[in-house]
């Protein structure tokens, strides 16, 4: 059981690093913002695995939903 949990930690962190790298490398802005939201969602999953469900709910609400909405407003405002 503990081996499974450590494997889940490593998988979540590796996918998080890949998503953060993709957020930097994408040329189009909307996929980059979605990759940033994936980083936030996986961070909330990592908080849940570390037995902090309160922080996980706050991170999923603020990081993955509201930040992405504000970024989408900014992208819409700058695009023709």
């Amino acid at each position: 059981m503990s081996l499974l949990v450590s494997f889940a930690h490593i998988a979540v962190l590796v996918i998080m690093i890949i998503a953060a790298f993709l957020a930097v490398m994408f040329k189009d802005l909307l996929p980059a913002v979605i990759a940033l939201a994936v980083v936030s969602l996986l961070l909330s999953l990592e908080f849940y695995l570390l037995h902090a469900p309160d922080v996980a709910i706050a991170e999923a609400g603020i990081g993955a939903a509201l930040t992405m909405a504000i970024y989408i407003f900014a992208i819409r405002a700058t695009r023709k």
């Binding site: 309160d54 709910i57 706050a58 609400g61 603020i62 939903a65 509201l66 909405a69």
Partner: peptide
């Protein structure tokens, strides 16, 4: 946390 979830519906 609950306020953030409800505000995400507004977003």
């Amino acid at each position: 946390q609950g306020g953030a979830i409800a505000a995400s519906a507004f977003a």
